[in-house]
Amino acid sequence: MNLRSLKFLSSLRRDNRQFAVIGLGRFGRAVAVSLYNMGYEVLGTDIDEKLVASALNEKIATHTIRLDSTEPIALKEAGIYEFDTVVVAIGNYVQESIITTLNVKEGGVAHVVAKASSQIHGKLLERVGADQVVFPEYEAGCALAYTLTKPAILDRFDLDPNHSIVEVLVPEEFDGKTIAEIQLRSHYGLTLLAVAEDEETFQINPLPNQRLVKGAAMVVLGSNKDIKKLPI
């Protein structure tokens, strides 16, 4: 269960059907191929002809074209302004990222998600109209820190600074006990959302009489303070 993907997916409006991804580096490619595999129409663009050719060969998007996103006319001719959501994934080139974000917002795109490489970069993107700013390197670093210091935490999605959804290994203290017996809500202040049936599937809203097995995974929701109380 990839909780980190929720952070991007939660920003998407339900009526979105078409996405344009500007910048086909590692982050842009990951976004494009994920959306494409989910069945959405995706246009991938980059100024680098090699990246565009690679994306075309690997079929990571519905369409791929080469363009200079700092040129409003090029964006208009490519039909970028007609897309529901545009993802500006040019995080390492601050000037081009800001100009591109400004261009697509002035072009009338309703929802623009922009990648930032620093806090200052993020503030500038917000100033020129980005609806959502993401920091993938920072988020990946935080996730790695949790993995290194709390190996029982498999995945984490921060709802806000104080609350999270986490996927954790069932601790030894819970082994063989039913969900009702561990009294997760009264003892820890947490809500159990799902329990692993096997390595690939989860049972959502499991029954109170289901027994937990040490080493299996479970997904819980609650405050970060309460999550730290878990015996993991």
Rank of each mutant, 00 (worst) to 15 (best):
R13T: 09
L193E: 04
H63R: 15
A61M: 09
E197F: 01
L221I: 05
T70S: 13
A53S: 14
Y81R: 13
V113N: 02
N103L: 05
V109T: 00
Y81A: 13
M1K: 13
T101S: 06
Y188K: 03
L9I: 13
S186L: 12
G39C: 09
A217D: 06
A110I: 00
E139C: 05
S54M: 15
E49W: 02
T178I: 04
G23S: 07
R14E: 15
V128N: 09
V112W: 01
L230P: 03
E106G: 01
P151W: 05
V166K: 05
I90Y: 06
A145F: 05
N37S: 12
H111A: 03
S11E: 15
K229G: 00
A116T: 10
E41D: 14
E172K: 14
A30L: 00
P161R: 11
L51S: 15
T64E: 00
L144I: 12
R13C: 07
F19D: 01
V220N: 02
S97C: 09
A140C: 04
A74I: 01
M1P: 14
T64Q: 03
L124Y: 08
G44P: 06
E126P: 00
G141W: 08
V86K: 06
P231W: 04
A140F: 03
I179R: 02
L144G: 02
E96R: 09
V21T: 02
V86S: 08
H187F: 08
T191F: 07
L67A: 08
E96V: 00
G108L: 05
I98F: 04
S69K: 10
L212P: 01
Y146N: 10
A130Y: 04
R29S: 13
E77C: 06
D46T: 11
E77G: 06
A143M: 11
N209A: 13
G215V: 10
L144E: 07
R127L: 14
G215D: 12
K225D: 11
I227H: 01
E167M: 12
Q119C: 00
H121Y: 08
G79R: 12
G222S: 08
E58A: 13
Q183D: 14
V166F: 05
A78Q: 09
V88T: 03
N103W: 01
A194L: 06
P208M: 12
A217W: 00
R17W: 05
L102I: 04
